[in-house]
Amino acid sequence: MAGLGRSNVSMPSLFSSAFSFPRKFTVCLGSFNGVIFFGDGPYNFLSFNMDISKSLIYTPLILNPVSIGSGRVSFEGDPSPDYFIGVTGISINEKPVALNKTLLSIDKQGNGGTMISTVVPYTIMQTSIYEAVVRAFTKELPKAQRVRPVAPFSACFNTKGIGISRLGPRVPIIDLQLPNKVAWRIFGFNSMVKVKDDVLCLGFLDGGFKATTSIMIRGHQLEDNLLQFDLAASTLWFSSSLLFRQTTCANFNFSCLKHYTKTGLS
């Protein structure tokens, strides 16, 4: 386990102080292995002969002024050490999903908003958001028969009629809309989970009506996405799926690094 939160005692802050490199870290998690980098790039992949940091998209990191939940290293009155981004809406196949957008903002008690977390595998959404997403997703997938749910998922489909591409199952594209007309695009590889030979489930979970955080983007949706957290600039740089570039987090080219700390994950 590694503490990577927004605090002065987290690994990114301590390494930055000890080795005098930028207060940044980058996470690239794969299905079987991945990497974490402390400091800056370059980020080259074996099958992608280019520094991918040149084509990353960015969005501000938002500071939640209230530390929420249990088990976090913080003190009363401190801001949250977690990473929040400003999702402003959700689209499926580029069609906006009707939802209560007040839930996407963080209130004075620290509730609401969108957090990035790797604690558990699947993204959690407040009930009204989740139900709206499932309705819109199902409407855009008319040729796939809805089947009995397989726990912990509630929206499952027969694979008949769902094709496969290098980006995973051919299902509706989910966009998390961000400020400045930026979107975090989620393709089938990150949106669907194969639970049986003939059943795929939408890999999002219902977090309940009283969910403290409205959206928590988690492990499965982060796989083979490169995320750079620039703590000094309070900015998240992200790639969306590396599969779109015909590579994965497991294909990183370490020979391009000379003076940067690197840690392999397995």
Rank of each mutant, 00 (worst) to 15 (best):
M11Q: 01
S16V: 12
S17D: 09
F19C: 04
P22Y: 05
P22L: 14
N33I: 04
D40S: 06
P42Y: 10
N44K: 05
L46W: 03
F48A: 03
L63R: 05
L63Y: 01
N64R: 06
I68Q: 12
G71T: 00
R72W: 11
V73F: 04
V73T: 06
S74L: 00
D78Q: 05
S80N: 02
D82Q: 09
I90H: 11
I90E: 08
N93E: 00
V97P: 00
N100Y: 10
N100G: 04
L103Y: 14
L104N: 10
D107S: 14
K108M: 04
G110H: 03
G112E: 12
G113P: 05
T114S: 13
P121S: 11
Y122N: 11
T123A: 10
I129D: 00
Y130G: 02
E131Q: 13
A132D: 00
R135Q: 10
K143E: 06
A144T: 06
V150A: 08
A155P: 03
N158C: 03
R166W: 05
P169N: 14
D175G: 05
R185M: 03
S191M: 13
L200M: 10
F204H: 00
G207M: 12
G208S: 07
G208T: 12
T212M: 02
I217A: 11
N225C: 13
L226P: 04
L227M: 15
Q228G: 09
D230K: 00
D230W: 00
S240Y: 08
S241M: 07
C249L: 05
A250K: 06
L265D: 03
